Each structure stands twice: as structure tokens, then as C-alpha cells.
Amino acid sequence: MNSRAWDILTPEEKSALSLSTNYGKSSWEAGEILNKPHYKYLEIQARAKTFFKIFTIYFEKTQGNIIPINSDMTWDLQEFILCTIQNRKGYRETLKIIGKESPLSHKKASQRLLALEKHLDFLENHPDRIHRDLHDLIKEFDRWNNFRILPPELQEPSAFKRRNKTRLLKHLKNLKELNPFDIDRLMFKFSAKDKYKGRKLYLPLVSDNFPDGYQVIIIKGTSKIVNYISVNLNLYIFKDKLEADDYGFLVEDYLNKGKKNCKQGQKFWPQFRLKVGKAYNYAQVNNIIPRRVNLETAFRDLDKLTVNKIKTKEANGINIGDPQKSAKQSKFWEI
């Protein structure tokens, strides 16, 4: 057993791992011993197993050091890693420990984010493999930890069945609040003319000014435009017209229901996540590193299962809320 990897675990994680592996307790028995709900114990156990595994592998490469020997990392990045991972401290508490001398503790959140983003880019693009492994370790630790150590803009999806609903709601709010002037600017700057020979993509927009409540714009598919719409506007783009149209119809229908109930939400959110999962720029909008894009596959499989259950219930005449209107085709802007 790697003692350094074991030391990374919290007392609760050590107990969860010991009860299952050393004492052969079932998850129900172990949960009762730790006075935890069953689902919570399973989460703690999964975290403990994952941390012990990934840190064992990492420490074998670094002779038991979190910070690689003779590393050229800045002092504040080293302190950040030691506080958050080795000492399991939160993001805000870590910044207080680092102190005002570091850009990581800048008064402005945007500057703090920029500083941390530069540090992570430094690790990700480092010529030394160990530093690149450390970058992935930080990302993986943040995914599995019981609290986040990275700001939302730098996070990857949680390893557990938690979803960043705040981000999804923010996206819907941005989509709904686009005013006619913004839409006109989008059309003027990014729309693909008839003579345009390059790749074309489809941007669904929602507005009360559209006859159907939503519209799909045909845009130029250049990397610069895709990046701007993804990062600056937080909007989804699709490769397929029908996918974009289905997405626009689904969102418009939900946003204009007025006062919503739980059943409508239970029906909408799995369908919504399935739709955005097919977006061309899904990874960019959700800050997923391309080589780790499969992290959310399990979530999408769960959503497919939920949607299929809903369809089965509807086919059997079981009422689960307001019936979804049948999909209709919008008039695409022929720019």
C-alpha cells in the first residue's frame, strides 16, 4: 500500500475504504456504521477508491512528491496545489493562505481566474510529462472531491450524478434575454450568405420577435466564430438543421410555459441535456478538454434512459405533466 496516497484521504474516506476492503462490510452496513445515507456512502467510497488509485500511480512517478522535484512552477502555484490537494482546503481558504502577493489572490475575480488559468495552461503544455500528469491530476481531483477547488469556468463535469444546473440556467437566461439588436448583430457578423462556400453551422435563437418564438440562423463555421459564440455568448451551435430546430422548439416551448411544475421540469431537463450533448460546440461551452470528452457519457446515457421511460409512460396513457407539442419545422433564415 502506498502510504502517501493513503495520507491524501480524509478520515471519512479511509473509513469507507477500510470497511469495504478490510472488513468486508456491505455498502448498507458500512453506511450505517458511518451514519451516512446509502447514496452518500457510495459516493465517499467511490471517491476514496479513485483517489487512492490515481495518487498511487502519480506518487510512483514522483517518488512520493506532489510537486515534481526541481519543478519550475511558481511558488504560488505550488502553494495552491499543496493547500487544495494535500491539505484538502477549499478554494477561498487557499487564496487567503497564499496571500495578496500572488495574482491568484487579486481583488478582481476576473484577474484571479486569469492567473489560475495561466498556471493550468503552463502545466498542461509543459515539456515534462510529470507536469502534464499533475495538470490532469488537479482536474481529476476537482471532479471527484466533495467540494470544488477550481472556479466554475475551469471545472470539468462532476464525477457524480450532480449537474451544474446553474450553468444550464445561465445558458437559458442568456438565450432568452438576447434582444433584437443583439440578434441583428449576430446575423450581420456571422450569418453565411448564399455564395459562402465554407462550412455552415446552425445557431438556434429564442425570441418573442420570431413568428414561432425561435429561429435558426445559418452561420459561418469558422473556428474564430465558433469560439466567440461558445466562450463569449455561451450559446450552442449544431451541425444539423433538424437538431438545431428540435433544440429551439424544445427550449422555446419550456420557457413560455409560464409557471412550471416539477413534472414539467423532470420531463424537460433530460431532453434538454440530450439535445445540448449533440451540439457541435458542447465541449467548448462546458470547458471539457477534448481528450477527456467522454466524461459525461454516463450522464447522457442516464438521460436517454429517463427520456425513454417518459415516452413509455406516455404511450401507456400515464399523465406526467403537460404533453409536449409535436416537433415542427421552423422557417430557416436563408441568408
Rank of each mutant, 00 (worst) to 15 (best):
I183P: 00
K197P: 00
N179W: 02
K173V: 09
L186R: 15
N234F: 01
D136C: 01
N164V: 06
I218D: 01
K189L: 05
L242W: 13
N179F: 06
P151T: 01
S207C: 01
A159F: 10
I130L: 11
Y214E: 14
K241S: 08
R167I: 06
Y236F: 13
K193F: 15
Y202Q: 03
L233P: 01
L172H: 03
L154I: 08
R129W: 03
I130P: 03
W144K: 10
I130M: 04
K200Q: 11
K193L: 11
N209D: 14
R148C: 14
L203V: 12
P151Q: 12
L123Y: 08
K200A: 11
P157Q: 13
N125Y: 15
K170H: 14
V216R: 09
R199Y: 09
K220I: 10
K161L: 07
R163L: 14
P211H: 07
N145I: 05
F188P: 02
L154Y: 03
V226I: 08
R148F: 08
D208I: 03
D128N: 15
Y214N: 04
D240M: 05
F160G: 03
T166Q: 13
D182Y: 01
L205C: 03
L137A: 07
N164H: 10
S223D: 15
Y236N: 11
K193R: 07
Y214I: 06
P204S: 09
Q215Y: 06
I219W: 00
N146E: 03
R162T: 05
I138Y: 07
T222F: 12
I217P: 00
M187P: 04
R167V: 02
E156K: 00
L175W: 00
E177Q: 06
L186N: 04
I149G: 02
E124M: 01
I218K: 01
L201Q: 08
S158F: 05
F141M: 11
D142W: 01
Q155L: 09
S207Q: 02
V226M: 08
L134H: 04
K241I: 14
L134R: 09
D184G: 10
R185L: 04
K161Q: 13
D133I: 12
S230A: 15
K193M: 05
E153M: 04
F210M: 03
N125W: 15
K220Q: 11
G221C: 00
L154A: 02
H131K: 13
H126W: 14
K189S: 04
V226S: 08
V206H: 06
H126E: 08
N164G: 13
G198D: 03
Y228N: 08
L175C: 07
L201Y: 04
N234H: 15
N146V: 00
I183W: 00
D184P: 13
N164T: 11
I138D: 00
D212A: 14
T222V: 07
F181Y: 11
V231H: 14
R185E: 06
I149E: 12
I237T: 04
F147N: 09
P157I: 13
L233C: 10
L169D: 15
P204R: 04
K189F: 12
L169C: 15
D208P: 00
D133H: 12
P151W: 10
D184L: 11
I149T: 06
R132E: 02
F188R: 07
K193E: 08
L169H: 10
F181Q: 09
T222L: 05
L203G: 06
L242M: 02
K239F: 06
F147G: 05
K241E: 13
K195H: 06
N125M: 10
L172W: 01
P204E: 03
K197T: 10
K220T: 14
K173P: 07
I229A: 05
